[in-house]
Design a protein around this nucleic acid. Sequence first.
DNA 1: TAATAACTTGAACTGTCGTTCAAGATCAAA
DNA 2: TTTGATCTTGAACGACAGTTCAAGTTATTA
Lengths: 195, 195
Amino acid sequence: MANVARYDREEVVRKAMLLFWEKGFNGTSTRDLQRTIDMRPGSIYAAFGNKEKLYGEALECYSQEMSGILARHIAEQGSPLAGLEMFFRNVVIDRRESNPSEVCMLIKTLSEVNEQQSELLELSRELLKRAEIRFTGILQQARDQGEIAATANPVVLARHLQVQMIGLRLYMKTSGKPEAVRELITNLFKSIAVK
Amino acid sequence: MANVARYDREEVVRKAMLLFWEKGFNGTSTRDLQRTIDMRPGSIYAAFGNKEKLYGEALECYSQEMSGILARHIAEQGSPLAGLEMFFRNVVIDRRESNPSEVCMLIKTLSEVNEQQSELLELSRELLKRAEIRFTGILQQARDQGEIAATANPVVLARHLQVQMIGLRLYMKTSGKPEAVRELITNLFKSIAVK
DNA sequence: TAATAACTTGAACTGTCGTTCAAGATCAAA
DNA sequence: TTTGATCTTGAACGACAGTTCAAGTTATTA
């Protein structure tokens, strides 16, 4: 064939994701990117097309990581509802300082990007929708196992959880009060659990 | 003394606010601003210092507007809790298309801005804190009037409302489902009201 | 009416942006 | 060992960013 790429695409996308997550789309310059992923402009544009498409791949990478974290918590707890609660605590409170940003990358994108990057807007909507569907499935399991009321509606509850996840992470960044947020999460799951 | 400014400062800041709210800090160029507020660079920099300071004034203008809207709803409803609920419906659902953005401008700032504009970060934190204190006061009134349980904690409840307001507005933009969001708001206020 | 302080104008500066592309390097196949 | 397709390099492009400032305009004061 010919010369073969000298970079690991997954690794590169992950590094780009961390930078984009921290600085946002407009806040990240292509020169920032070049340094971070250690590639020259020509290679980047040959591999990814442009900045927007690379950001798109970074968004998908972010989604996969979050999805993996959720799966791990559910497996560890051996219970859908307890797994969800641990996931909330972990993402909103514990990881807030080691992560590039306290805010969900999908939400950052949704609130930053305008109509000129409508593909990114649609992609973040799509990925958030998938997360909600994921929540719905987990809540159905919780209902089947009697962890939440048999009359509860998993679809409505999943929407509720999405609102909480979005709101809590931003409130964490706003207030800087982990104890207050911990209390809010506890109350949230108390109000969901079967009484 | 001498020549007098030919622009109305309040009006100019309000126009700048609407543009910044729509496009964000990094997404708004000074030339965008020049066109929108109809001032030349020299005048802008003489009046406001720089882009960041103008953005700061825009943030305060935004806060005042939101605060006014809340006050009007409470006055109209003649009840703290009903006023709050109408405020939520109005801001999250009714005004979403006429506003420059569906997302709260303070939250947009908080999630976009980095350490290089730490003044703006601190300012949005401060203004969000004021909003929360405002909520606390209203909830205290609601408790005094027996609209919520006498055992309810207005401070914790105000935090809860902040999380909801942030989450609901972003979820509205994510999902594009006003009916689902309306249901979430109804549930929220049902869960708060005295049973 | 002349002087002067305040405000406005817009060209221009320096720096950085996203992106392109010709030239060089690399490796599998012939 | 030569060929040739593929990938890498980094200088360079035009556009636009935030900001400055000398020159011009305006209205008040003396």
